[in-house]
Structures are given as structure tokens and as C-alpha cells.
């Protein structure tokens, strides 16, 4: 059973290949494909014998290795200059080197993690956090995508409500621009859902008009949108009030 845990140490086929290159003490730029492929396949067989789920990525790499091996058996092109380009291993070597770079950074991060875990900071207290939230400037930027997602979330609530009356909407986008501006007059912020609460008694088209008005205001820079973390409440800020 101890093997099981250790065998899973390889993060993926590239990790396993790097290990085999290291173990055989061969040059990464001149990988003996036949040898490495054989050992790679032995390893996969071993994984299967131990009833480990062999991820499809490992199988794909096995196929890639065999393809490279086959291509290396084909006669090389006559012209000298093409020999460099011809090496069927090149693409794989580039991937391995790229991966190795990030593996190295991961090691560096792990070192930083170890160091950082020796420090203790004031723990974040949820209750206090909400209390300070408004003054904190640590809001992340909200993309249009986030805003649309929030809008979709809100509009969903209307989907199941049977509509009985058809009223011609008297409220235009321009009306809603004024409405939002008035809401934000004299206050620092309002949440996106709070804004929609104000208009939800009306029909869907008013909601849409309000949303378009909001986009217009953001475009003009008259409203700032921020959020604390992904999927959290989106907040609209009045940029004229310094917070």
C-alpha cells in the first residue's frame, strides 16, 4: 500500500518523463526515446497492476512517445539544414523544458509557503470583517461579465412569476439614469441587488432599462462597480464621494 501513495507522486506524464530522464542520467536535448518509452510503458503497466486509475493523459503521452519513436526510424531528409527541424523529439523537449520551469517555481513557492507558515497574523474575524467592509479599499475590479452574471441571477427570479398585466413601460433608460443618480446622491454606495429591489415591483422591461442605465453610467464614469471577492455582492459606488 505504501507504493500506492508514492506512485501517485507523479503529477502527470511530463513529471514522469522528467523523472525517467533524471534517473537514466540522459541529456534532455537528446532523449533516448526507445529506452524512455520502454520504461514509461513499464511504469504504466505497473500502475494498472496496482489498480491505480491510469489517467488518460498518461495514455496519450504513451501514444506520443511511440509516434516519435516511429518517426525516428524513418529515413532522415537529405538536406543538411532540415535536420534540426526534423528531430521528432523537439516538440516534446520544448514541453518538458517549459514544464520543468514551472515545476521549479512550484518548488520556490513551496519554500515560501514553509517560511510564511511560521508567521502568525491577526486572524480574520468574519463578524468584524463585515463591519469594516465598507471602509476597506480592498475591493476587486468587477468585469462586465460579473455584472451580467449578477443581472442574470436577478432576472431569474422573474421567470417563474406569471405575468397578468401588460403595461406599456413609461420608464426609459434616461429616466433610469436619473433614478440611479438620485439613489446615489448623498450616499457612498448601494449594492447591485438593492438597486434591483427598488425596481423589481415593475415589469421586466423596467428592469432592463435600469440595467442599461447602469451600464451607461459606468461607461460615463458616473458609477464605479467593485466587489470584495468573486461571486460576492457587487457594489455600486458614487465616485464623487471619496471613500
Amino acid at each position: 500500500m505504501a507504493y500506492r501513495v508514492k506512485l501517485q507522486n507523479f503529477e502527470g506524464p511530463l513529471d514522469l518523463l522528467l523523472f525517467l530522464i533524471k534517473k537514466n542520467e540522459v541529456d534532455i536535448y537528446d532523449i533516448p526515446i526507445a529506452l524512455v518509452t520502454r520504461q514509461y510503458l513499464e511504469y504504466i503497466k505497473m500502475m494498472q497492476q496496482l489498480d491505480l486509475d491510469v489517467a488518460s493523459e498518461f495514455i496519450l503521452m504513451a501514444a506520443t512517445l511511440i509516434r516519435i519513436k516511429v518517426r525516428m526510424l524513418l529515413p532522415k531528409p537529405e538536406i543538411e539544414e532540415e535536420i534540426d527541424d526534423f528531430d521528432p523529439r523537439r516538440e516534446l523537449v520544448e514541453r518538458l523544458l517549459e514544464y520543468k520551469k514551472y515545476k521549479e517555481v512550484a518548488y520556490e513557492l513551496s519554500r515560501l509557503e514553509t517560511r510564511q507558515r511560521l508567521h502568525f497574523y491577526r486572524p480574520e474575524n468574519e463578524a468584524q470583517l463585515t463591519q469594516f467592509e465598507v471602509q476597506e479599499t480592498a475591493y476587486g475590479q468587477v468585469s462586465l461579465f460579473d455584472l451580467l452574471a449578477a443581472f442574470n441571477e436577478s432576472i431569474k427570479r422573474f421567470e417563474n412569476e406569471p405575468v397578468h398585466k401588460v403595461i406599456a413601460s413609461a420608464l426609459s433608460v434616461d429616466d433610469q439614469i436619473v433614478f440611479i443618480e438620485e439613489l446615489l446622491t448623498g450616499r457612498n454606495q448601494i449594492s447591485f441587488s438593492e438597486l434591483l429591489q427598488h425596481v423589481h415591483i415593475f415589469n421586466r422591461s423596467v428592469l432592463v432599462a435600469t440595467f442599461l442605465a447602469l451600464l451607461e453610467l459606468i461607461h460615463r464614469g458616473a458609477v464605479l462597480v467593485k466587489q470584495k471577492s468573486p461571486f460576492s455582492e457587487i457594489l455600486l459606488f458614487n465616485p464623487t464621494i471619496n471613500n
Binding site: A55, E57, R95, Y99
Partner: peptide
């Protein structure tokens, strides 16, 4: 990310 790491 997956192209670099070679895994899901």
C-alpha cells in the same frame, strides 16, 4: 494551464 502541466 493544462497544456503546460499536461494534466487535467
Amino acid at each position: 494551464i493544462e497544456a503546460i502541466r499536461g494534466v487535467n
